[in-house]
Computed example of a mutant assay.
Amino acid sequence: MSSSNATVLPLTDAEELGWQERALCAQTDPEAFFPEKGGSTREAKRVCTTCEVRVECLEYALDHDERFGIWGGLSERERRRLKKQAV
Rank of each mutant, 00 (worst) to 15 (best):
K45Q: 15
E66G: 04
L58Y: 03
G73A: 05
E52D: 13
A26C: 09
L17K: 09
C48L: 00
A6C: 12
E31W: 08
G39M: 03
R22C: 10
C51E: 02
E36G: 02
P10K: 04
D65N: 09
P35D: 04
D65E: 15
K45M: 08
P35Q: 08
F33A: 07
I70T: 10
L58S: 05
E36S: 04
Y60A: 10
A6I: 12
E56K: 13
R54P: 01
E59G: 03
T28H: 12
S2M: 13
E59P: 00
R80M: 08
K37F: 06
K84Y: 11
A61R: 01
G73Q: 05
Q20R: 04
K45A: 00
R42H: 02
E16H: 11
V47G: 00
R77A: 10
G72T: 00
E78N: 02
Q20E: 11
A6D: 15
K37Q: 09
R67T: 11
A86K: 10
P10E: 09
D13Y: 07
A23L: 05
R22Q: 13
Y60D: 08
C57M: 04
G38P: 10
F34E: 06
T41Q: 04
E36F: 02
G38K: 06
S3V: 13
C51I: 03
Y60R: 04
S4Q: 11
E59Y: 00
A32V: 08
D63H: 11
T7A: 14
F34V: 07
T41L: 03
E36L: 07
D13T: 12
C25K: 05
E66F: 02
Q85L: 11
H64T: 15
D63I: 02
E16F: 09
A32N: 11
S40I: 04
R67L: 12
T7C: 07
T50I: 08
L82Q: 02
H64R: 11
E21K: 14
L62N: 06
H64M: 09
R67Q: 14
G69E: 10
P35K: 05
E52Q: 13
P35L: 06
A14D: 06
T28K: 14
P35Y: 06
